[in-house]
Design a protein around this nucleic acid. Sequence first.
DNA 1: TTATAATATTGCAATATTACGATTAATAAA
DNA 2: TTTATTAATCGTAATATTGCAATATTATAA
Lengths: 109, 109
Amino acid sequence: MGLTKSEIFTDTQNQIATLAKAFAHPARVAILQQIFKANACICGDLVDEIGLAQATISQHLKELKSLGLIRGKIEGTSVCYCINQEKWSKMKQLLTAFFNQDLNNINCC
Amino acid sequence: MGLTKSEIFTDTQNQIATLAKAFAHPARVAILQQIFKANACICGDLVDEIGLAQATISQHLKELKSLGLIRGKIEGTSVCYCINQEKWSKMKQLLTAFFNQDLNNINCC
DNA sequence: TTATAATATTGCAATATTACGATTAATAAA
DNA sequence: TTTATTAATCGTAATATTGCAATATTATAA
């Protein structure tokens, strides 16, 4: 099939999966790292930094934007990207809680 | 195309992406939560708990196993799954470090 | 040995993702 | 206005993922 049966899972499970998908491609990881590295908004030299075509980068940016993890502000002919701090925090909280499940767990094997 | 160009990214970027993929499907999130919830090894009643076919669950388990996040111990005709604590810790460390990049970041917008 | 039970594997269909050339849209500069 | 510059969108090809029926495998029970 290829169609995820979202309806049989809880909202939290779907949210975790959707957010994890953002990081499930090295290009998107690299894009986010670049934005953080700049320690400010980055005015789209991402295509030069990462070795992918402009259309491809634009597509990855769109996905990150649609998840709300980054924002794009138009500055003349270029676009400046930055992290959406609130959304990033919420994402971190959700995923960290999921990761920390092991703290309640008995080491059985 | 559809082929991720792993070679143009760093090892860390690829590792983050590969691990994130484990959580990028709600069924795998649900499986991991079930294993944690049992607070021990869980002997494959996952198919009943989650509403997917046996073959599908088996496939998701295989992916989690191949990443090393879970282990399967054969007990008679059934298999008991549990979290690989060391691998889980390492995963947590890598992804948490990635998520905490925002701590060094100036809130610019 | 012959069932029975539990899980893995295979094969396939359908959908999703990745990548990029070409085009379009919008702004800035000449 | 014309010409760059920059980024988004469209269209398309290739690969990946998801899901399941059918089958195979493995170990126990009869």
